[in-house]
Design a protein around this nucleic acid. Structure first.
Length: 119
DNA sequence: ACGTTGACCTATA
DNA sequence: GTATAGGCCAACG
């Protein structure tokens, strides 16, 4: 269990999303909804998507390819350039993607609610 | 200021 | 198994 320290500056929703996404280990994935729920705003999963959409503007690298929807489908691949990049990144880390869907999703799923503690 | 738009999710049929 | 509906709420035009 790792503890996430949220400083005064990083209190806004987007920053918190980025901090969680950065904690996803190599070869594991999580879902938009899981992040939203972890941050206390379940039902705002679409905002997590928005955060990913804006993640390329961030200075630090955000492993947005490790975030998929709750069925393990790579719904966000069209926002990568090229779209195949997302699959390549995942498979490079050992995640097997078949037909835009993560294989053994339940096994590689990384749940921030279990793995992270917020401070 | 306001209507529309989503890298979503749950529920229901 | 698919389909449709409603809620969500920040950002964009």
């Amino acid at each position: 269990m790792r503890t996430l320290k949220v400083s005064e500056k990083n209190r806004d929703f987007f920053s918190q999303v980025y901090q969680v996404v950065r904690e996803i280990p190599r070869g594991r994935v999580t879902s938009y909804g899981a992040i939203a729920k972890f941050l206390g705003s379940a039902g705002s999963a679409r905002m997590v998507g928005w955060a990913m959409n804006a993640s390329h503007k961030q200075i630090e690298n955000i492993p947005a390819h490790r975030v998929v929807n709750r069925n393990g489908i790579l719904t966000g691949k069209h926002h990568f350039n090229p779209p195949e990049k997302m699959i390549q990144l995942l498979e490079f880390e050992g995640v097997i993607v078949k037909n835009d869907e993560v294989r053994d999703f339940d096994k590689v799923f990384w749940d921030p609610i279990i793995e992270l503690d917020i401070e």
